[in-house]
Design a protein around this nucleic acid. Structure first.
Length: 570
RNA sequence: UGCCUGGUGGUGUAAUGGUAGCACAGCAGAUUUUGAUUCUGCUUGUCUAGGUUCGAAUCCUAGCCGGGUAACCA
């Protein structure tokens, strides 16, 4: 997929830091020591059972970034050892998301399933070496035999099965002679090991299931532990980076490679990303999608890569964010505001400015004839002349934001009020002298104003100060559109605050999506393309919705609001 | 309760025995035709207790607190 964001990039903040994080430090040391022939090869190994999210982006930036910085390579490998959960739909989305983020894997996409034959051979090798056996215990029995943290486990009654019998049974498992769950192949390590992962872990289980790539070729599938390290090894990975929960698996990862006598990558664990006010677990994300609580994986409220993309996040902003949060082993939580700030930082530099009125209030400028239209020149970026200018029509009837007018305004309010003046951005100063209301509801329906012809461009001829400047759109030229405003998905910062037994979905923010219809946009927005970001002046950064917008019915998403001064009135 | 692992301002993250810095947030001010941006300044921190050392966030000991971990998930 192409980088659909046409705005120019600004990756200056992605320059290599002066200080290295602990992983980069370690890789630096390894290279200096000539380990693995001073070669650096990483991999990003997602399981294709869901869509990638911002947490994966951290891992992607780390793995691909590391490879790039050390002149190495990074593979993309689908960790597809569980046919029950995986699907090609996910494979395709993962590839698209990685590329959109701006990374390209080395060579073809790899699959753990490509190694099923090799893995099978390794399993037989372990059986022959007396280090693996076929066990007939069921799930419940295995749990009981495993013991607990305080008590050692007991050996399986099948632990001392003769090698020849193990081999025969394993081959029959492969041949499909047994039903699911009837046998497993287990490593023979130590049922009293303090590390539970070493208490004879399962290597293979029987699953008469259709695999998204190997079809019905196999009915036994390797477990994560048996597949991951060896896959790394087969690909010549030097540094196998994963998240903290795999720390306890490292001894097992190393054990397999040592027993098999094959290339030994170094597993290094880092803390996964936690973000406030959102959900990140695949299970919960899937729950939102399945229950229709969001409009699919790409709902702009989702922390998925495709959701963020549709929301208007740029690859640059995401990469900058990942670089800024750093890599450690400390279990931290990053405020959502930090992510939003990364987007603003990028878009402030790259997004062209336009005017759009989200909640329109009609203003009639009485001293302009009905048929008069004047073109005003507007800068496309206040600080970047190279963005050029555009002509915007100005006439008798315009729309301004309802919130930019107040009848009984406090002193701190410096936009439009009865008898007061305000500057129309790029146009003239207007003065309000009449407020028209709906006789029944009392709602303000129209403002009658006059403009000062001596204030072309907004500068007064007599030197009087005009404090407020508001945006506006010519009523005769405005384009109607739907605009979607987004807020945090969750009301609470963390789901840890949810009490046991309570449905976490009670914490979903009812205001996470607010749809505004009949918004009045500057006509240039008709030419907006998917992937292009704009700043609607004073309102925030917006982009065309990639799924629901049509030429007849434009739909814009607010990517992120502008920062607002704390004391802003009204 | 075992094992693994971590603890630096409000939130993150540097300092690799030698001035505790940076970012985000917050506060105050300047500039501003976006209450944006930009710029300036400020507040707030080494989990605790001992020890080693001329000198400790860093090394040692003990404690305290947090996270992970007992799928035929990954």
């Amino acid at each position: 997929m192409a980088d659909t964001h046409s705005n120019s990039t600004n990756d200056s903040s992605e320059n290599p830091a002066i200080s290295l994080d602990f992983i980069r430090q370690r890789v630096t040391d390894d290279v200096a020591a000539g380990k693995h022939g001073a070669r650096v090869q990483t991999r990003f190994p997602p399981e294709p059972n869901g869509y990638l999210h911002i947490g994966h982006a951290k891992a992607i930036c780390l793995n691909f970034g590391l490879a790039a910085e050390f002149g190495g390579k990074c593979n993309l490998r689908m960790d597809d050892t569980n046919p029950l959960a995986e699907d090609t739909e996910y494979v395709e989305s993962i590839k698209a998301d990685v590329q959109w983020l701006g990374f390209q894997w080395d060579g073809p996409v790899y699959y753990a399933s490509d190694y099923f034959p090799a893995l099978y051979e390794m399993a037989e090798k372990l059986i022959l070496a007396g280090q693996a056996y076929v066990c007939s215990l069921n799930v419940e029995q295995v749990r009981q035999y495993r013991g607990s943290w305080n008590s050692p486990g007991r050996n399986s009654p099948d632990r001392d099965r003769p090698i020849s019998e193990n081999l025969e049974l394993f081959r029959r498992m492969k041949a499909g002679e047994f039903p699911d769950g009837s046998y497993t192949l287990r490593a023979k390590i130590d049922m009293a090991a303090p590390n539970m992962n070493l208490r004879d872990p399962a290597l293979y289980r029987i699953r008469h299931a259709h695999h998204h790539r190997t079809g019905d070729q196999w009915c036994i599938y390797p477990t994560y532990d048996f597949a991951h390290g060896q896959s790394d090894s087969l690909e010549g990975i030097t540094h196998s980076i994963c998240t903290l929960e795999f720390e306890d698996h490292r001894p097992l990862y190393d054990w397999f490679l040592e027993q098999l006598g094959i290339h030994r990558p170094q597993q290094i664990e880092f803390a996964r990303l936690n973000l406030t006010n959102t959900v990140m677990s695949k299970r919960r994300l899937l729950e939102l999608v399945k229950q229709g609580l969001v409009a699919g994986w790409s709902d702009p409220r989702m922390p998925t890569i495709c959701g963020l993309r549709r929301r208007g996040y740029t690859p640059q902003a995401l990469r900058q964010f990942c670089a800024a949060i750093g890599v450690t082993k400390f279990n931290s939580t990053t405020p959502m505001a930090r992510l939003e700030e990364a987007l603003r930082h990028d878009l402030n530099e790259t997004a062209g400015r336009v005017m759009a009125v989200l909640e329109p209030l009609k203003v009639v400028i009485e001293n302009i004839p009905a048929d008069q239209v004047e073109l005003r020149t507007a800068a496309n970026h206040p600080a970047k002349p190279e963005f050029g200018t555009r002509e915007i029509p100005f006439g008798r009837e315009i729309y301004i934001e309802r919130s930019d007018f107040m009848e009984n305004a406090p002193k701190s309010f410096f936009r439009l009020q009865p008898g007061g003046e305000v500057r129309l951005r790029f146009a003239y100063v207007i003065k309000c002298h009449e407020v028209k209301k709906d006789p029944d509801t009392g709602e303000i329906v129209e403002l009658r104003c006059t403009y000062d012809p001596e204030t072309a461009g907004g500068k007064t001829s007599d030197g009087r100060k005009i404090k407020g400047t508001i945006h506006w759109v010519s009523a005769a030229h405005a384009v109607d559109a739907e605009v979607r405003l987004y807020e945090n998905l969750l009301l609470v910062e963390s789901l840890a605050e949810v009490e046991d037994g309570e449905d976490w979905k009670n914490q979903l923010n009812p205001a996470s999506l607010r749809v505004l219809r009949g918004c009045k946009l500057e006509s240039s927005l008709r030419q907006a393309r998917v992937g292009q970001s704009f700043q609607f002046e004073r309102n925030g950064y917006f982009c065309l919705d990639s799924e629901d917008s049509t030429a007849q019915a434009l739909v814009f998403n607010r990517s992120v609001s502008l920062r607002e001064a704390a004391d802003k009135s009204a």
